[in-house]
Amino acid sequence: MSKIWTIANRELHTFFDSLIAYIMIIAFLGFSGFFTWLYGADIFFVKQASLQSFFNIAYWTLFFFIPALTMRLFAEENRSGTLELLLTKPVSDWEVVLGKFLSTFFLILIALALTLPYYITVASIGPVDHGAVWSGYLGLILMSAAYISIGIYTSSISSNQIVGYLLALFIGIFFQIIFVMLAGNFTGLIGETLNYLSISTHFDSVSRGVIDTKDLIYFLTIIFLGMLLTEANLARKRL
């Protein structure tokens, strides 16, 4: 357990030392702040004390930012050969995968925590549905975890970071929007299945405040599958 934390801690330091973390946080706050407060369907346009517009924009910004964070996690170590050193230390592959996952997860948590002033501001403007805000945050956290898991998997496929990034976006876009769009064209079982596969369906239902075990199981399954495939990729190198 302490080794997982050691790995996560090292990765987190790398994020901050290499400025990736600052750039990501500033860009994330900038984008989401701009569209939440200043432009388009912002809070003043909607005229409701709700963070719904923030959640909608964060849903998309995180989708693009997360693969940029995860792409180097395994690809870089693979290229430089440090992965070999890491895996010949007394740690299991799972500990390495979990450590890397947690580092990015913490970074996203930090970024989301920095948007709490939005919440405080909105709460001071008008009556806010506090439950909806917290479940909105929960939705963002769950979807982030799912995309981190996918991103880590694509990073472990090759030693090229760009491949990792693009592949994560390619896989992600299906969960993000394509499944739900296709679902509109089908009825019956196929339509329902596609709908169930889409992250947006589950994100909407969680962020609306309906936290169903069905949704939780969905997110946990994606997270687990991503890590399982990553672990399989690491194990395959030994053969």
Binding site: H13, T14, D17, S18, S80, G81, T82, E84, L85, T88
Partner: peptide, 10 residues
């Protein structure tokens, strides 16, 4: 290992 892999930023 061969080529002595290290984390250059650390």
């Amino acid at each position: 290992p061969e080529n002595n892999p290290l984390y250059p930023d650390m």
